[in-house]
Design a binder for these strands. Sequence first.
DNA 1: GCCAACGTTGGC
DNA 2: GCCAACGTTGGC
Length: 157
Amino acid sequence: MAASYWLMKSEPSVYSIDDLKRDGRTIWEGVRNYQARNMMRDAMKPGDPVFFYHSNAEPPGIAGIAEVASAAYPDPSAFDRKSPYYDAKSKRESPAWVVVDIKFRKRFKQVVSLEELRQLRGLENMPLLRKGQRLSVQPVSAAEWKRVCEYEQKRSG
DNA sequence: GCCAACGTTGGC
DNA sequence: GCCAACGTTGGC
């Protein structure tokens, strides 16, 4: 089956593309939105490429590329009473939340900012660009993926 | 720091 | 099952 493409948001003050580059691989814990969870659980596959998006950043935008590195599995932070992501309704025998692992692929020389994304043709249907859309895990079409990558490559020479 | 948009919670 | 209140996200 062909790869699906994704976009995942992170606040760089919490976990940035540079952190991922340093770590090589990380567990994407703390997703507490059902739509996002369902996509991780039902649709993400190891090897799928991921845009790593910096939210609440200056500027906000796509900072690089990661890759899904595992199938979905229960989110351990939901079981951890000391974690900010603890959720009492998630039980080990019936986990409410899942994670995937992701690994580092590439850091863009320059963030492709939200403002630039808004100006690119062909990205009009990206959930990211729709007002009020806050999903932290989003699907990206093959055409959208290509468009952003071509733009980034052209710009970085 | 503000606030619009959205998701979740809980009283009824 | 409705919906008001509340909490969160995230751009600005």
